[in-house]
Design a protein around this nucleic acid. Sequence first.
DNA 1: AAAGAATATACCGCAATAGGTATATTGTTA
DNA 2: TAACAATATACCTATTGCGGTATATTCTTT
Lengths: 127, 127
Amino acid sequence: MELVQIYQCLCDRTRLRILHLLTQGPLCVCHFQSVLREPQVKVSKHLAYLRTRGLVHAERRGNWMVYSLPAKPSRELAANLACLQDCAAEDRTFRRDVEKLTVLRRDLDGDAPACCAKPQPIKRKGP
Amino acid sequence: MELVQIYQCLCDRTRLRILHLLTQGPLCVCHFQSVLREPQVKVSKHLAYLRTRGLVHAERRGNWMVYSLPAKPSRELAANLACLQDCAAEDRTFRRDVEKLTVLRRDLDGDAPACCAKPQPIKRKGP
DNA sequence: AAAGAATATACCGCAATAGGTATATTGTTA
DNA sequence: TAACAATATACCTATTGCGGTATATTCTTT
């Protein structure tokens, strides 16, 4: 994998946030949606971008797609992910992303099959 | 300086090579030209790209422009430059660039005012 | 002042990218 | 099998980036 390609993957805010979240462990698309507060299409396309370039790995789990960092990242990728984590540690957005993720996970504890679905408030039809 | 902007600067091969060379010390445009073997315009434009984003610093020296890394790089920039050096250490192109630079400097030893001009072979008009 | 050297910029065309809307795909559930 | 849920893709548009040619700028030297 070319070093430049790694940087090309890193040069977008959304992708940076995605990769940073992934350093916390595997996540499915809806996780990104709710943490980043970005539309599904946007998230999905950035994930595709990263996937086609080998920066992330995708695996289907029923209806959900679970994304993760490669099991054995190249030296270059590993180095840059470490660097990213280092830089992100002092950045508001990145830190808040992780916090949101933590909360999300706590709320979903045990709700595995529902993935991101928060305990649904009662739904009613419109008036 | 935004982290993303740093990555945007890093996501081009030529700029990567430029930055990597600069970790060896300040250089003027003609140095880059002859080490990278790229046309003046190309080098100059990439340097401008880096300069307007604060990744490099430029200073005039007579006819020459001397480029260097900022004296006090931000945490993020420092981290990424270190990472780049680390990655470059195992890459052919980057290593050869440094070798070329070393040779160039040896050849020019003492030729300060002429900057990059190699000891000119005798020039003749066409046949 | 004029010529020349080193470097920068303007402008152009093309390819790549980001984001949006609409729609397709794939698996699950009733 | 039909409806639904999660995700992906096609298509469109606007912007950006890269490389090239031609030209401008800024110093130096004569």
